[in-house]
Amino acid sequence: MTARTAPLVFIVDDDASVRKSLARLVRAAGFDVETFASARDFLARPRYNGPSCLVLDVRMPGLTGLDLQEALATARQHLPIVFITGHPDVWAQVKAMRGGAIDFLGKPVNDQDLLDAIERAVTKTGRAQHDEARITDIRNRIKAVTPSEAGRGMGPIDPIPRPSSQRQ
């Protein structure tokens, strides 16, 4: 895999023209873009470990956006997701946010809102990768302490910082 200069944005939408126009917009903002017509197509893609995010349509035939979110969580693939939907319904929104979505945007999307959400998401991937390393380290250390040490309580742990909104 060649080194990337820009974060990679995956766009999954069953509607070809939406897919195409969003890709155009996101690309114009300086991101790399890959588009998929369905959740299955996306799942078939090899895992990408660089800074990236997923722009995901909620409603699609077959596997829906929420199904995909669930599937990724199950696979412990912590890809930040920006949901877009033509019909913002509260239930879907709640479910998406609980599942850790970065944002839930209604169609038609305002370009700035979308790009901000993407920005936050890709930053998060960077941090998430860093955090994951730290978490692994902490877990290893926890394994190393004696049960008596463990009984005395947990040592101070660096809090995971909230992803900050960064403009490009």
Binding site: D15, S17, V18, K20, S21, L22, R24, L25, R27, A28, A29, R59, I84, G86, H87, G106, K107, P108, V109, N110, D111
Partner: peptide, 28 residues
């Protein structure tokens, strides 16, 4: 209405996104 909103939102999303992409490209 639900489905009609969706029906309308799709092309609107596409239009808006295309136009905004254009704006950005002109800006830079």
């Amino acid at each position: 209405t639900t489905s009609l909103a969706h029906e309308l939102n799709q092309p609107l999303t596409a239009i808006l996104s295309c136009a905004q992409a254009g704006q950005r490209l002109i800006d830079v």
